[in-house]
């Protein structure tokens, strides 16, 4: 936990809908938790918020990343690499997935990371530079893509919009949990799902059948 840092909406990953992520699901996350966070922030501000400022190392890391792009003189373009990242994610991490394809694409993502690290920012102007913004976004997209990919490959079952052809069944014994991803070491962890609602009678999770 970082004191004073708040996240609302899907980025906060409260996962209220579990493996179901249909259009419109984002609204519950936004409205319910947005309000809850707002109320909490107001209270925290009144009581004096316990905020952790950035450390020198945080600032150095952020400015180094910016300086890397600003200092780039040649290399592949951001648009090209983004297209490739999109292609990989669309092909192998769509709803229908297979272990072999995912593993080979995870390898390609690692290769993409090396290429992005030496890619070229062509426009270094100062006013409303959306090219720089997109370059920084590409760094972020790669992180999210890799987290998605590694966690998807690790989840050896099919559930919701994660349909594997090598593990076609839902496996509640091992995977009735949230997947956690730790970027340092690219480690996958699990976190149990909270099944203790306060006001609704708990129902036993079962496989959906039609």
């Amino acid at each position: 936990m970082v004191g004073g840092l708040y996240a609302i909406g899907e980025v906060a990953c409260v996962s209220v809908h579990g493996a179901n992520r249909l259009g419109g699901n984002s609204l519950l996350d936004l409205v319910v938790f947005g309000r809850a966070a707002g109320i909490h922030i107001e209270e925290a501000m009144r009581q004096g918020i316990n905020r952790r400022g950035p450390s020198e190392a945080d600032v150095d890391r952020a400015t180094a990343r910016l300086a890397r792009w600003n200092g780039s003189e040649s290399g592949e373009s951001v648009a090209e690499l983004k297209r490739e990242l999109q292609r990989l994610m669309l092909m192998d991490f769509n709803v229908f997935r297979s272990g072999d394809n995912m593993r080979s694409s995870i390898g390609e993502l690692a290769g993409l990371r090396e290429r992005i690290a030496v890619a070229h920012l062509a426009d270094k102007s100062r006013v409303f530079n959306t090219a720089r913004l997109e370059a920084l976004e590409l760094d972020n997209l790669l992180e999210v893509a890799e987290a998605t990919a590694i966690v998807a490959e690790a989840r050896t079952e099919s559930r919701g919009a994660h349909a594997r052809d090598d593990y076609t069944e839902r496996d509640d014994d091992n995977w009735l949990c949230h997947s956690l991803y730790f970027a340092p070491g690219k480690r996958v962890g699990k976190r149990s799902v909270n099944f203790a609602p306060q006001t609704v009678e708990t129902f036993k999770p079962t496989e959906r059948s039609y």
């Binding site: 373009s77 090209e80 920012l121 426009d123 530079n129 959306t130 090219a131």
Partner: peptide, 11 residues
């Protein structure tokens, strides 16, 4: 156009 010339700015 922006893929060819990244300096084109729009929101």
């Amino acid at each position: 156009l922006k893929a060819e010339d990244p300096s084109i700015a729009y929101r």
